[in-house]
Amino acid sequence: MREFLLLDVPMLVAALMALLACGTLGNWLVLRKESMTGDAIAHAVLPGLVAGFLVAGRHSLVAMFTGAACAGVAAILLAGWIRRTARLEAGAALGIVFTTFFALGVALLETQGARQIDLDPNCVLFGALETLFYVPPEAGSWIAGVPRPLWTLAAAAAASVTLSLLASKELTALAFDAEHARATGIVPRWLEPALLFTVSMVVVASFEAVGSLLVVALLACPSLIAAPHATRIGPRFAISLGAGAAITVVGHFLAAYAPRALGAHAALNAAGMIALLLAAAVPLSFALRAALNRRQA
């Protein structure tokens, strides 16, 4: 029981908050046909993140977010410029900019001493959920023992939900028919950049704990799982988060305890497990819908 509270609960809470943060905003991205934007952002912010940490130390949130934000903005601007100047299709422009930035980030990490900032490329990809455990503080309230990434995730989730609730009709209009929204002035000009910026911040916040792989999965898969079942925006969000949460919990326990059941000794990568289950759930969800439709007919 004690192990559950100290190890599993923080991991679960982190994963679920990452789901809330990424899954909510992810709905907008998927509806806008930008499912791979999260992947691009996750790759692009790495050098900024690392530079921030190198300058101000591992635990400086300000440095981390500032660095990541700068890198993210630089990457987006650069990709746009390349699209226009080199007349390259969007996918390729993104591909070049974001892999180059990521390569820079990895180079910085490996050469400047990963040990120094306690972040290694494997963690960047596959997350460090397993390292989030609760350390009961010697003195003072229990809050002090909560691992720091959980707070960042909580803030990210709050930002994500707030933006989505406040601007839901505008974001819906923008996702549904961007040209019309702009033509008729339904949507203020700052909304799109605001959405992209919030997505970037959420990605950065989630990155640390869950890694780029799970970030991409959380941004795209929950929404796609809900797609065949929801004919309105409200249910789309509800189903994506509900199904996502259920799968996250299952994934966590499978990764943590299945090896033990099979006689092995160490846990499997939680982020990877959750990602693959979320992805597998997408075609299954469509199959379920098809089966339900046949039964009704």
Partner: peptide, 30 residues
């Protein structure tokens, strides 16, 4: 404005009433 060929994906989760309502969004306010 009614565009000629919009990039609308009709699998978007909306009902007809929701789309018609969009014409009123600037009137309703942010």
């Amino acid at each position: 404005y009614l565009p000629q060929r919009s990039e609308i994906d009709w699998s978007f989760p909306l009902r007809a009433l929701d789309v018609a309502c969009m014409g009123l969004y600037s009137r309703i306010g942010l």
